[in-house]
């Protein structure tokens, strides 16, 4: 399963005086099994991009190809293609509507026209993936749960459609550290166990440093960097210029290098920095 974006441009309110170019000639290809982080300032076009990837928005020009098929092509069954790409919106808990958790999660697979037995299996599996105990929660009303739990129900609702690619728009927004850690470790498991391709939009560079294998940096509708986190975080000036943060570990590393310390230029994980500092200290320690 691959997603290929070719020269994607999107203009809101095209032809009117207030038209704004939200995406400007963006191209990239995502391969199976990648964990891609999409970062950019609010209003940079991230959310617009994400909505193109499963056909909720149509490109003004350019194409989105899923396994080589144009998502907006005339002969394409958009609903079938869309099912392969699960999209979790920002604050997805606001879309819950059913009486019970299980029924809500079943909404997607039901729309896919699956048999009851299959739907059940999907619901079970999806709840397991988001660490919600079936016995305990399946028959509860989603509105009785905590915010973090509701969010996991909503994500399960998308996972139950068994997408090959999972796209999440700021999945940890508004959650406390515990809720955030649960979501992130859940995504880590999905990547490692089910080999789901994951695209995640996030403002948190620390989360990106922890999870992403590749980063797409978007500024003012343009793709300004497409590289490994190591390569991107080694250019703190680029990120700062477009109003984004740099992981603290990379900041420390850059500051120490500025003082003349001999550290590798591309450290961005705290463990790496810790080990480098320990080596430095042991080297400096006369004993």
């Amino acid at each position: 399963m691959s997603i290929e974006v070719r020269h994607l441009t999107h203009t809101y309110g095209e032809g009117s005086a207030l038209s704004t170019v939200a995406l400007n000639d963006i191209s990239f290809t995502i391969q199976e099994g990648e964990f891609v982080g999409i970062v950019g300032h609010t209003g940079s076009g991230k959310s617009t991009l994400v909505q193109h990837l499963n056909g909720l928005l149509k490109p003004t020009s350019g194409q989105v190809l899923v396994d080589g098929e144009d998502l907006n092509g005339e002969k394409v069954n958009r609903r079938v293609l869309r099912q392969r790409i699960g999209l979790v919106f920002q604050y997805p808990e606001y879309q819950l509507f059913e009486e019970t958790v299980a029924k809500d999660i079943a909404f997607g697979p039901k729309n896919q026209g699956l048999s009851t037995a299959k739907i059940d299996a999907r619901v079970h599996h999806a709840m397991e993936s988001v660490h919600l105990d079936y016995q305990k929660y399946a028959e509860k009303s989603p509105f009785e749960l905590s915010g973090g739990q509701m969010r996991r129900v909503a994500i399960a609702g998308v996972l139950a459609m068994a997408p090959k690619v999972l796209i999440l728009d700021e999945p940890t927004a508004g959650l406390d550290p515990r809720g955030r850690d649960r979501i992130l470790s859940m995504l880590e498991e999905l990547r490692d166990r089910e080999h789901t391709t994951i695209l995640m939009v996030s403002h948190s560079m620390e989360d990106m440093a922890r999870l992403a294998t590749r980063l797409l940096v978007i500024a003012e509708g343009k793709l300004v960097a497409d590289d490994t986190p190591r390569a991107v975080f080694a250019r703190p000036d680029l990120l700062t210029r477009i109003g984004l943060d740099v992981p603290e570990a990379a900041k420390l590393c850059a500051a120490l290098r500025g003082k003349g310390y001999d550290l590798p230029p591309d450290l961005y994980r705290m463990e790496e920095v810790r080990n480098a500092l320990l080596a430095l200290w042991k080297g400096a320690d006369p004993c």
């Binding site: 909505q51 999209l87 879309q95 819950l96 896919q112």
Partner: peptide, 30 residues
């Protein structure tokens, strides 16, 4: 919400009047 439900395969546009009214539930409840 409409987009979110569409991403879950909801169909707000086709079908007869009754099924269309029914398809509004996932939009109206939230």
């Amino acid at each position: 919400i409409m987009k979110a439900q569409m991403a879950r395969g909801a169909d707000f546009e086709s079908g007869n009047l009754i099924s269309r009214a029914k398809s509004m539930i996932p939009l109206l409840v939230p």
